[in-house]
Amino acid sequence: METLGAPGAGLAIALENLFPPLPSEVILPLAGFTASQGDMRLFDVVVWTTLGSVIGALALYAVGALLGRNRVVAIASKLPLINVADIERTEAWFARHGKKTVFFGRMIPIFRSLISIPAGVERMPISIFTLLTTAGSLIWNTAFVMAGYLLGEQWELVERYMGIVSKAVLGIVILAVVIFVVVRVSDRRKGRHHA
């Protein structure tokens, strides 16, 4: 961070979008702390990290756009327990709630990165996607950079508490997947018994 400055923080956040195991909950407060030491300007940190978020999100949007609906459906049809109807329901849901999902998704651990792919698959207008991603990322990044800036030497407290939130979100996702699998297997068994 001290070597590359604010552009380095932006690069780290761009990579965090592509490789979620690099947590923004560590990078952003550390960047804020570094700014509090006078090694970077706070404004530069917020601008560069937000730019990094947008660049990373656009890369994943491009992956979704390149995959396209037909490939996603073809892949899904080969997966066990997935029906094409699941894809159609997801598409309908995204058509109704896509803008809110992209905006608020930028502020939810794990989903921050993943939400860009369905936006690309659904070909959300790139200008709207970029605007919503910038706005959501700006809020998230500013909050965490400011937390690190204000906490100073204790900036790691942010990561400790957000680690709990991230684990809770991951737990909810795992629970939802388990419920989905149980319901789908149960439906298939019932279908077999009726046949």
Rank of each mutant, 00 (worst) to 15 (best):
N70C: 04
G163D: 02
G98R: 07
G152D: 05
V173K: 05
L132P: 00
E25H: 09
D86R: 04
I82S: 03
P109Y: 05
V158H: 01
A35M: 10
H97I: 06
S36C: 08
R184H: 04
I172N: 04
P7F: 06
K78G: 15
N141K: 05
F43P: 01
L132A: 06
V145D: 01
E159T: 15
E122N: 09
I110H: 06
M107H: 10
R89T: 13
L175G: 06
V102P: 02
S24P: 02
L58Q: 10
R69I: 04
P118D: 13
T50E: 00
S186E: 02
F33I: 03
D86L: 06
S127D: 14
G64V: 03
R106V: 08
I55P: 00
I174Q: 02
I139Q: 00
R71H: 12
A6I: 09
I174Y: 05
L4P: 00
G32I: 06
G191V: 05
A119Y: 09
L28I: 11
T142V: 04
V165N: 01
V181F: 01
A74M: 02
W93L: 13
R112I: 03
V54Y: 05
V54P: 01
G148V: 12
A195T: 15
V54Q: 04
V26Y: 04
L58C: 11
A135E: 08
A35C: 13
A176R: 13
F104R: 09
A59C: 14
L151Q: 08
V47T: 13
G68C: 07
P109N: 05
D44P: 00
A76Y: 00
G32S: 05
F104A: 09
I55H: 07
A62Q: 09
V84C: 03
V46K: 01
L30M: 12
E156Q: 15
A85H: 11
I87F: 15
L11S: 13
T134R: 08
S137H: 03
I55M: 11
L58Y: 08
I82Y: 04
G120F: 05
M124T: 02
F180L: 07
L11Q: 08
H194I: 10
I139C: 00
P23I: 15
R188A: 07
L81C: 11
P7C: 14
E88N: 15
P7A: 15
I82G: 02
I164L: 02
L28Q: 06
V178K: 07
E159N: 12
T49Q: 01
L150C: 03
V158P: 01
V121N: 14
V84K: 10
R69Y: 08
E25W: 13
E16D: 13
P118V: 05
W48D: 07
S186H: 07
W48A: 14
K167P: 00
E88R: 15
F19E: 11
F144W: 10
R123Q: 15
V84A: 06
S186C: 01
R106Y: 13
L114Q: 08
V63F: 12
E122D: 08
R160Y: 10
